[in-house]
Nucleic acid binder design. Structure first.
Lengths: 202, 202
DNA sequence: TACATTTGCTAACGCTGTTAAATTATTTCA
DNA sequence: TGAAATAATTTAACAGCGTTAGCAAATGTA
């Protein structure tokens, strides 16, 4: 029965439209303006229909979060491919993370809870861990073998993440610093941490 | 007429009770659970009364934000007093910032938009700038005179802020890393930035 | 054509922030 | 003290929210 497939395809399409419409609304009016009825309007249905595709509003946010992590992982892999030297790879990957945050601002917001209230973050789906694992592994690769303990890698990983995510958060909530300062802070910080990583502290 | 004063005192008291009740609700049930009717219940009034004291819900959040900055400034001043050496003062001030974020978690959340949706942040009241100015000035004090440009201070200030705020945000949204790793990341980062600040890069 | 199933909508519930009107309490003044 | 004016609070309502139940229309199946 090809009709079953066709119907399934239509359902998938609607599901996709819901996600697209949601993201579009958020891009136009922000996360606070996202409502089930507004999504329904955009896909030319009524609100209860959405519950055929997502169990509730939070499930939509969770799915958008997942999509965000998939896109981020892609961009980070691409950044990695551009270099051969692990240190350059790592820096390039963090830069990809940085660029993603602003190119896909709304996705980053729902992924990391910047300026969006709900979304409990409890359900740790594996897609969420791909980007962090990539960075973690790359850091491990760079750290000299005799210092390469899990804890030490953790520390460096969180240091990287903190400074990058912190700078992003600051830029997203209060828009203070200039682009030039952002660039400087970011490259300074990345270089600084890399330096502290590769040079043995005796 | 002392009765006028008495009435004013009662009004101030109620205003204060609204803020206290709001913070209490948030501490018990989180920012999402804060509603005008719930606040009214707690102060044993009905919801519209609150509008006699605050123009809307956002105004309550804004005032709590202001209170947060006042408390933070106090704690940072205290941290500064504990040391004589500027470098130790700066590190102590950042540590105070860090401690404040977790001791007054709910205030920090509304101040820096971690896990709370509304609060536009537009109205830049002067109280908000006290803590950042304190840190900025202290950084300026430490940086060698021949490098002490506004831009350079900005870069160092944002680097500090990013790593500290980033680490806090990460801890508040996903609670991953252990306390030991947090301590390490924080002290590593602070020392690292201080080092990069005082040593001239030729 | 008759039945079964899917599809979508309407209406409703309880919640939200907010406002206008009505009610109650308090003060003022003759 | 009693009436009028003012202030303090409440009730009722509006529009919106997420969500669910029940009904109507369209579709598929026999």
């Amino acid at each position: 029965m090809g009709s079953k497939d066709r119907i399934q395809r239509l359902k998938d399409e609607t599901r996709c439209k819901i996600l697209d419409a949601s993201l579009a609304i958020v891009k136009e009016e922000g996360w606070a303006a996202l409502s089930m009825r507004k999504i329904a309007d955009k896909i030319e249905y009524t609100a209860p229909i959405i519950y055929e595709y997502f169990s509730n509003k939070d499930a939509i946010l969770t799915e958008l979060t997942r999509i965000g992590y998939l896109k981020l992982a892609e961009q980070m892999k691409e950044a990695e491919r551009k270099h051969a030297d692990p240190i350059e790879q790592l820096k390039s990957m963090w830069l990809a993370y940085w660029n993603f945050a602003f190119e896909e601002k709304e996705l980053y917001q729902v992924m990391y809870g910047v300026e969006v209230n709900c979304c409990v973050m409890e359900n740790a789906c594996p897609d969420m861990q791909v980007p962090s694992n990539m960075l973690w592994d790359k850091i491990a690769e760079i750290i000299p073998e005799d210092m390469r303990t899990d804890e030490y890698i953790d520390i460096k990983y969180y240091t990287f993440w903190s400074v990058v995510h912190g700078l992003i958060s600051i830029n997203m909530t209060n828009r203070l610093s200039t682009d030039e300062i952002n660039r400087q802070v970011l490259s300074d910080a990345l270089n600084g941490i890399v330096a502290s990583m590769t040079v043995r502290t005796t």
